[in-house]
Deep mutational scan, measured.
Amino acid sequence: RKWEEIAERLREEFNINPEEAREAVEKAGGNEEEARRIVKKRL
């Protein structure tokens, strides 16, 4: 699934746990840019 690939990239890029990465992607509706913004806000 594409969402899992996005979550994996976010996890590696921001050094967050898989659960946090998945939550961000879900919140963003699968949009990678939006997920990235969500993760950055949390850091």
Rank of each mutant, 00 (worst) to 15 (best):
E19M: 10
I38G: 05
K40A: 13
A24P: 00
R11V: 15
E33M: 11
R36D: 01
P18Q: 14
A35E: 00
N17W: 07
E34C: 03
L10P: 00
V25I: 11
V25R: 00
A28H: 01
L43V: 09
I16E: 02
R1D: 15
E33R: 08
N17H: 11
A28L: 01
A24K: 01
V39I: 15
F14R: 01
R42N: 14
G30W: 04
E8L: 11
G29M: 14
E34R: 09
W3C: 05
A35D: 00
G30P: 01
E13I: 06
E26A: 13
N31M: 08
G29V: 11
E4I: 06
E12L: 11
K41R: 13
W3Y: 10
E13G: 03
V39D: 00
K40E: 15
F14H: 05
E33L: 10
L10S: 00
R11T: 12
E20D: 11
V39S: 03
L10Y: 00
L43M: 12
A28V: 04
L10A: 00
R22I: 13
E26P: 00
K2I: 14
E19W: 09
E5P: 05
A35L: 01
E13H: 05
V39W: 00
E8H: 07
P18H: 13
A7G: 04
R9F: 04
E12N: 11
N15E: 11
I38E: 08
E12P: 03
E4L: 08
N17P: 15
K27S: 11
E33N: 10
E26I: 14
A7T: 08
E33S: 09
K2N: 15
W3F: 11
N15K: 09
P18M: 15
V39K: 00
K41L: 07
E20N: 05
W3D: 06
E32D: 04
R11P: 01
I6K: 03
E8T: 12
V25Q: 00
W3S: 05
E8P: 01
K41S: 14
I16Q: 02
F14E: 03
V39N: 01
K27T: 10
E32M: 12
A24Q: 02
R37T: 10
V39Y: 00
E13K: 03
E32H: 11
A21R: 00
E4V: 06
K2Y: 12
V25Y: 03
E34L: 11
L43P: 06
P18S: 13
R1V: 13
E34P: 01
N31Y: 07
A21H: 00
E23L: 12
N17R: 08
R37F: 03
V39Q: 02
A28G: 06
R22W: 15
A21T: 03
K27V: 11
G29K: 15
E34M: 10
F14T: 03
R22A: 11
R11N: 07
E4H: 07
R42K: 12
R9V: 07
G29Y: 11
F14Y: 09
A24I: 14
R9L: 09
E12V: 10
E34Y: 04
E4G: 08
R9C: 05
A28T: 06
K40H: 12
I38V: 09
K40P: 02
E32C: 04
E13F: 04
L10H: 00
R9K: 12
E20H: 08
E4T: 06
E8N: 13
E23V: 11
E19K: 10
I16K: 01
R9N: 07
R36A: 06
V39F: 01
K27W: 08
A21N: 00
I6R: 01
L10D: 00
N15G: 14
